[in-house]
């Protein structure tokens, strides 16, 4: 029974020779992350938003773990940090709704967040899309790492 983890160890030794793959992925990963941020913050004007950005951001981590090995990838984002972001995004979303309530509006009404209702809507949508992106990215990274890191290497 071969697991991804065992494969990744053997592959890491092979990878030492596969310079092209390593260099290309190192070039690609920052671009993927930059594109994810663009999709995240440009979602108001073009296609995109938190859901897509979260998945694209996660795919950068998945590519890193596939090329350099899952245990190396785990060091970039520890399990504790992943769980923190998993909850933080959802709490940010729900928190924006509660702040709106405290400011005298209804739950998840962003118009009251700032003086100008349209600016308030902008701020609210920016924050909740950020919450969506963080939770989706953390969820996808968590799920992938759990699947890829099943076996204890004895």
């Amino acid at each position: 029974m071969k697991s991804l983890r065992v494969m990744s160890k053997r592959r890491r030794r092979e990878m030492q020779h596969k310079e092209v793959l390593r260099v290309c992925s190192k070039l690609l990963i920052p671009l993927i992350m930059l594109f994810a941020l663009y999709v995240q913050f440009h979602g108001d004007f073009g296609p995109g938003g938190g859901f897509q950005a979260g998945v694209i951001f996660a795919s950068a981590f998945i590519l890193y773990a596939l090329i350099f090995g899952v245990d190396v990838g785990m060091k970039v984002l520890s399990p504790g940090a992943r769980r923190f972001f998993l909850a933080a995004g959802l709490l940010l979303y729900a928190g924006v709704g509660i702040v709106g309530m405290l400011l005298g509006g209804r739950y998840l009404n962003y118009s009251v967040l700032l003086q100008d209702p349209i600016a308030g809507q902008h701020l609210g949508i920016l924050l909740i899309e950020l919450g969506v992106g963080v939770t989706v990215a953390a969820a996808m990274i968590t799920i992938f790492y759990v699947f890829a890191n099943q076996d204890d290497s004895e």
């Binding site: 004007f45 209702p117 902008h122």
Partner: peptide, 15 residues
């Protein structure tokens, strides 16, 4: 008009 966003999908989704 109400959210100031041209992408209607985002304005429905988020607001």
């Amino acid at each position: 008009k109400q959210t100031g966003m041209p992408n209607v999908v985002t304005s429905i989704l988020a607001s």
